[in-house]
Design a protein around this nucleic acid. Structure first.
Lengths: 139, 139
DNA sequence: CTAGTTGCAAAGAGTTTGCATGGCG
DNA sequence: CGCCATGCAAACTCTTTGCAACTAG
């Protein structure tokens, strides 16, 4: 199996999308947000194209696909060279805020559950529901 | 605030849905499956009604809602009387098995997130998605 | 030149909403 | 009787597909 894969052109749209995601870094976006972004930039990219590129980029390991809530659209996040293990998400049930949290606890949980309980956690879907500071202190 | 809750009638449809889910026990179903089930039973329930009841039942803590795969529809599973608090829930995305896990790690997580990150986790909704031993070792 | 790419329009799936009718308490 | 529940049809959102025109290499 040769690694030569010319089966992909380096088009302007692809570049735009990937660059945009790289700029966002750890922040994830939805397909719709990407579309809206470029609309405003006078460089509109068709939604079809966006979806198709996102899919390819996921397969190529350049970005990661998240499923936070269901009805909500999928989120995509750039994968940096760094050991970006991702972060976890705290979703406030009251105000709806989504908090991104970088913390080693994530890895500890994953390892513990894998080693002690034989369950391989899908980190991409790990979401903790609860109340953020503002919302529970006011209760 | 009295515990009187007249804001919900015990209708036939509600009973049918809840009973059906209780019978299914550990097996989860989708809204569509419920609809199809009662269609065949000559006791068709409108999809709207099904969705509305499922939502209420989730809020009442009678059933639990899961998101397995993305495009797929949401899954609902009956919550038995048994004490389902104080432990983790691991839901296998592949075989659908729900694993109840008693482990001190839970408290650690909860405390850590509360103390370090000011977020009060709602344990009732905490579900980890991933793959159980049988499903990931076969990969 | 040629295969991959683009994007409009339309299809699809799952879920929600509007609204008039029906039923529980 | 009043308020909630019901369910049909239509709306909505996110995503995918068909297809003809276009472009990178």
């Amino acid at each position: 199996m040769n690694d030569k894969r010319p089966a992909s052109y380096n088009t302007q749209q692809r570049k735009l999308i990937l660059d945009y995601m790289a700029v966002l870094g750890d922040n994830h976006v939805t397909a719709g947000q990407i579309a809206r972004h470029f609309e405003h930039e006078d460089a509109a990219i068709g939604q079809t194209t966006i979806y198709r590129h996102l899919e390819k980029l996921v397969n190529d390991g350049r970005i990661r696909k998240y499923f936070l809530n269901e009805g909500d659209s999928a989120c995509y996040q750039y994968i940096d060279n760094k050991d970006c293990q991702g972060h976890f998400h705290l979703k406030c049930e009251k105000c709806g805020k989504l908090i991104h949290l970088d913390c080693d606890l994530l890895n500890e949980i994953q390892e513990h559950v894998l080693n002690k309980h034989n369950f391989q956690i899908n980190m991409l879907k790990m979401v903790f529901y609860g109340k953020c500071k503002e919302c529970f202190s006011g209760d």
